[in-house]
């Protein structure tokens, strides 16, 4: 008789990659719900299309690469990439934008680098960066919030926009607050003047601030669930806050307030959901703090002096490149050394 005798440990926590990914998706739900409230149903169609595209591409690539299809489809990583990309794209973007972005993310950024676990760059952000460079117009046209327009897009209207482009729906779209601010500053207006515009809410962009808070709640839940840890989000937001504060003190007419930087754009989403993508981030504790701080600084630099209004994608991608080096130099000292 010979028994089953694997190597120790014989105990395993009840967790899996699928669970990790599903929890990330659950944490995104409140933010997405508020998105629908403020910007209409467009985002739902975007997410659906993104998910279908992602799963389709994933399955095809797994087949081509002769990998088992089901376990990898089931791991949920493609879902997370799809949803993150879909909510980063304007909700009234035409359907083919989503399709191209997601397909690029899964096929090129993920599978051509070796699939789950091997991709040095965050696939969703690679897809986003590609879209932003190739289709700047579609990528910067955001829906206005209900407070700015009476044209709140219900499910049916959203579907029309989604399918047919946005003809006939003029007046529903505009620039994001970050984008608008940048244009106005270039026209030599002060921050205070620019902020008079109705697309600004109490702290950041109206609507955006609530969505950011919802993502913040989701992120804190993820930390509680031990899916992510605090190092990256905290160092990311802290460094963004501090550098914004310094410039705000230097000239508050030309530089937006730190609170504005934190609460608008994709700062919160980026800090908790994008920069923390395990595969492409730094993994040591000190490394994560450096990595997060680096992203925060880069975001500020790109937003303030760069050519793009929001910068989470580029900042994350730039730091992805540094992650292996950061890890190498931040190896912890083992016990007894």
């Amino acid at each position: 008789m010979s028994l089953y005798s694997p190597s120790s440990p014989h105990f395993h926590a009840d967790n899996s990659v699928t669970q990790v990914m599903l929890k990330v998706l659950v944490a995104l739900v409140p933010g997405i719900a508020l998105y629908v409230v403020f910007f209409g149903f467009g985002i739902i169609f975007n997410i659906l299309l993104a998910v279908i595209t992602a799963l389709g591409c994933e399955a095809i690539m797994l087949k081509l690469r002769k990998r088992p299809v089901l376990p990898f489809l089931y791991d949920g990583s493609a879902l997370v990439t799809a949803v993150l990309l879909a909510i980063s794209i304007p909700s009234i973007a035409p359907w083919w934008i989503i399709f191209i972005g997601v397909a690029f993310a899964i096929v090129i950024a993920k599978h051509l680098y070796g699939g789950l676990g091997y991709n040095p760059f965050n696939p969703a952000m690679v897809g986003y960066a590609m879209l932003l460079i190739s289709y700047p117009k579609e990528m910067t046209n955001w829906a206005l919030t209900i407070s700015n327009t009476n044209n709140y897009l219900g499910p049916w209207d959203s579907l029309l926009v989604f399918l047919k482009d946005k003809h006939g729906f003029d007046g529903i779209s505009g620039a994001t607050p970050l984008d608008y601010l940048k244009t106005q500053l270039n026209l030599d207006m002060t921050i205070a003047e620019a902020m008079q515009h109705s697309s600004f809410g109490l702290l950041g962009g109206s609507g955006f601030e609530w969505i950011s808070l919802a993502f913040l709640a989701g992120g804190i839940w993820l930390i509680k669930q031990k899916i992510i840890n605090w190092h990256i989000p905290v160092s990311f937001l802290a460094s963004l806050f501090i550098i914004a504060l310094i410039f705000y003190f230097i000239d508050s007419d030309r530089y937006a307030s730190p609170v504005f930087h934190i609460i608008s754009g994709a700062s919160i989403l980026g800090a908790f959901f994008i920069a923390t993508d395990p595969v492409s981030a730094a993994t040591t504790v000190r490394g994560r703090i450096i990595y997060g701080a680096g992203i925060g600084v880069l975001i500020y630099v790109i937003r303030t002096w760069g050519g793009y209004p929001d910068a989470v994608a580029f900042a994350v991608l730039l730091m992805n490149m540094c992650a292996p080096t950061i890890d190498y130099y931040t190896k912890p000292k083992p016990y007894g050394h």
Partner: peptide, 15 residues
């Protein structure tokens, strides 16, 4: 908790 391992997946470098 003593059940045999599920399918082994690639390392996702979660740390």
């Amino acid at each position: 908790h003593l059940k045999p391992r599920d399918e082994v997946m690639p390392c996702i470098r979660c740390g």
